[in-house]
């Protein structure tokens, strides 16, 4: 059920709602990834493969700029307390706060209160608070705080247009995250020289599932056969798993369909829905094995490009950058979020 409010939603609120959901989702994913990496993920030499997180987030360049030597010990603080890294936990906490503050008139007091407390806790983190021993504890707490947030949002957010933009943000972020994770980890675990089907490292493949909170669900579906193709297929194509690509593309489409119900939005939404339909069709037309044989990396890159294109198209549709006459045009332009 959708409530149509008498005054249309301000573009600014739609934008903040979307980014609030995206950043919260990103934070939960990062916390889980740090947690799983510390416990399970190892490189060929048997050491914790922290650098896989750099690859998943495409942060190698920024990391090298900030650190002269690619010390593994520096990767954890880079993702927890480094304010110059926009995808660190503290930066995400700051971004979440700014968006939520702008949304104060729209969100419930319970939602703001929880977010206020937990983002403040994160912003107060010092490097010294984070030793090898309590990283897992910190990440567990962040993950649970994010899950609490999503629970409060589900239980208290009013179901009007603002809610739809929140849902869009969450599904877009999940789609992006799952393709990045599969892309990087698949190629880390399966060097090109190795033929598909050869012996695989079960612990490492299980960790891919754990990084996507998919281990339990996958095991229910396939208690015995754990193969790379099964895992890739589950994360990309399973319609029952809440973080799979296909589930989230479906949700993006459903949400756009709900938006299209409003007065003049049907036409505006249709190019966006076409873009999603193309993505969904390409996913349905191929099995996981076919995707892998044709080139998993290229396909994941294409999907990421399409998702980023969709994000830009949504922005251009619902919060077009204002055009100002001559004076102060650059200063007035909105700060882009990403």
């Amino acid at each position: 059920m959708m409530i149509v409010s008498p005054t249309p939603l301000l573009s600014r609120y739609a934008e903040c709602m979307m980014w609030l959901a995206r950043y919260m989702e990103r934070m939960e994913n990062l916390a889980r990834l740090l947690e799983v990496t510390e416990t399970f993920v190892r490189n060929a030499e048997g050491q914790t493969a922290w650098d896989s997180i750099l690859a998943i987030n495409s942060d190698e360049c920024l990391f090298e700029q900030l650190h002269t030597s690619a010390q593994h010990a520096e990767i954890v603080p880079f993702y927890v307390t480094e304010s110059r890294n926009p995808s660190s936990l503290v930066s995400l906490a700051q971004a979440v706060r700014e968006n939520a503050r702008a949304l104060r008139p729209l969100v419930s007091i319970e939602l703001w209160t929880q977010l206020n407390v937990f983002s403040r806790n994160l912003l107060n983190l010092k490097n010294g608070d984070m030793t090898e021993h309590n990283l897992a504890e910190l990440c567990t707490r962040v993950r649970q705080d994010c899950q609490t947030h999503f629970g409060i949002a589900e239980g208290t957010l009013y179901r009007d247009q603002a809610w739809l933009f929140y849902r869009l943000g969450k599904a877009l972020e999940r789609s992006d995250q799952i393709t990045r994770l599969i892309d990087i980890r698949y190629h880390m675990l399966l060097p090109r020289s190795e033929a598909p089907g050869s012996d695989i490292d079960l612990t490492q493949w299980t960790s891919v599932l754990r990084s996507a909170a998919a281990y339990h669900a996958f095991r229910r579906l396939r208690p015995v056969t754990l193969t790379p193709a099964n895992i890739v297929g589950f994360l990309l194509k399973n319609d029952g798993f809440p973080r799979s690509l296909s589930t989230n593309l479906r949700q993006i489409d459903e949400t756009l369909a709900l938006l299209a119900v409003h007065d003049n939005l049907r036409q505006i939404c249709s190019p966006l829905r076409e873009c999603v339909a193309e993505l969904r069709a390409s996913l349905q037309d191929q099995t996981a094995e076919e995707i892998i044989i044709r080139g998993l990396h290229d396909y994941m890159s294409w999907i990421q490009n399409q998702i980023s294109h969709l994000q830009n198209a949504i922005a251009a549709t619902f919060w077009p950058a204002p055009v100002y006459p001559d004076v102060a045009s650059t200063a007035m332009a909105d700060q882009e979020q990403s």
């Binding site: 005054t7 249309p8 939603l9 301000l10 573009s11 600014r12 739609a14 247009q161 933009f165 938006l259 409003h262 007065d263 003049n264 939005l265 505006i268 619902f318 919060w319 077009p320 204002p322």
Partner: peptide, 9 residues
Amino acid sequence: FMRTVMGPK
């Protein structure tokens, strides 16, 4: 005009 998701009002 006001910038809204339904276009300028």
